[in-house]
């Protein structure tokens, strides 16, 4: 039983390096950080930035699906809100610092999450999915119809380049800006999201979300204000998804309402399912798998939707909530066991 209580204060460097998962994480981070400089491959770097933006969004989404146990079909609302906030804050308000813009985007997405959360909190399962879908489509229509003259409808709006703590990075040549600088911003954001969520989801707060997922009646009868915690999880989820959207907006440089549409929500759900909603890193793997698969399928066939659907069908049927990531973990464990037996 004493193994449950590793002392936190005096963990030395040597001990940290013995933690294989942490070590693997650091290695992956360093390799990714060096990748653009090593390969000078613009296409790959852009693809990786794209994947990382969606990895953040998929992780945020999975707080609600994987931990609180609610299937939302309206997470495009938070992704799109993050994107439009970037444009509006830079274009209309005149705040151009990248970090400030990202923080504002997260706060605004969190607010939208709170509103949608409060409106949907009493519904379950299919009703929750439909209600979140309907509310997200409402935002989509607002953006398409250009109500208030903010979004310029389906034409979309261009995103100007942000500043970074007074450094005029917007004047950098395009290659250096996108491949060098911005890639690393997104990488750090993803790493920070992973570390933060790793702790949050293992804390009493994360356990409370799991209690609600596993047995709402029991959670309530254990003294947990279930509805309030469901709203909390929506807010946290919306903030993380909004960050993903905001980072993606700066990457692509042009925003249209389609990022608020239900197909966007569907893609986020797809990524989480593909990677494994029952695992912590599943959504990250799912985002990578989804985007790579899409690129691959697009280059071979115009029926790429069919290919994607087939893959998801097979993954969900065979691996269920474990997805690709959970399946890979199980495989490695089995191989290790077999090696141990010999």
């Amino acid at each position: 039983m004493s193994t449950r209580l590793p002392t936190f204060g005096n963990v030395g460097l040597a001990e940290t390096l013995q933690n294989r998962r942490l070590l693997a994480g650091i290695v992956v981070f360093v390799v990714l950080a060096l990748y653009p400089a090593m390969t000078l491959n613009a296409y790959h770097t852009r693809l990786l930035t794209w994947i990382m933006c969606f990895a953040i969004a998929a992780m945020g989404f999975n707080i609600v699906l994987g931990y609180t146990g609610l299937l939302s079909f309206g997470h495009a609302a938070f992704f799109g809100t993050g994107m439009y906030t970037v444009v509006l804050v830079m274009g209309r308000v005149g705040i151009t610092d990248l970090v400030a813009v990202m923080v504002i985007a997260m706060v605004v997405s969190g607010l939208v999450g709170a509103i949608i959360g409060v409106l949907t909190v009493k519904t379950h399962e299919i009703y929750f999915a439909l209600l979140t879908l309907a509310l997200a489509q409402l935002l989509y229509i607002l953006a398409v119809r250009d109500i208030g003259g903010l979004t310029r409808g389906t034409d979309g709006i261009g995103v100007t380049r942000p500043d970074f703590f007074g450094i005029p990075i917007s004047e950098l040549p395009a290659q250096i800006y996108l491949l060098g600088f911005y890639y690393h911003v997104v990488l750090v954001a993803l790493a920070a999201t992973i570390v933060l969520l790793w702790f949050v989801l293992r804390s009493p707060f994360g356990l409370t979300l799991k209690m609600i997922r596993e047995n709402e009646t029991r959670a309530e009868m254990t003294g947990v204000p279930v509805l309030r915690y469901r709203v909390y999880s929506m807010i946290l989820s919306a903030m993380v998804v909004g960050l993903g959207g905001a980072l993606y907006a700066v990457l692509i440089g042009h925003i249209t309402p389609e990022y608020l549409d239900w197909t966007m929500s569907g893609e986020i759900v797809f990524m989480a399912l593909l990677g494994g909603i029952g695992t912590f890193f599943g959504p990250v793997v799912g985002a990578g798998g989804f985007i790579l698969l899409q690129e691959l399928a697009l280059s071979y066939t115009e029926y790429w939707h069919f290919t994607m659907g087939l893959v998801l069908f097979i993954v969900v049927l065979t691996l269920r909530e474990n997805g690709i990531w959970g399946g890979a973990k199980t495989l490695v464990e089995r191989l290790n066991d077999r090696r141990g037996e010999q």
């Binding site: 449950r4 804390s203 009493p204 707060f205 409370t208 799991k210």
Partner: peptide
């Protein structure tokens, strides 16, 4: 975890972030 969930809820510590539950020596 089932039991710890009850213990933490009684102490009304559901909103505590960042400390992993297995490192919370009291509970």
């Amino acid at each position: 975890e089932n039991m710890q969930a009850s213990v933490l809820s009684r102490k009304q510590e559901n909103n505590r972030l960042f400390t992993p539950t297995h490192r919370d020596s009291a509970s």
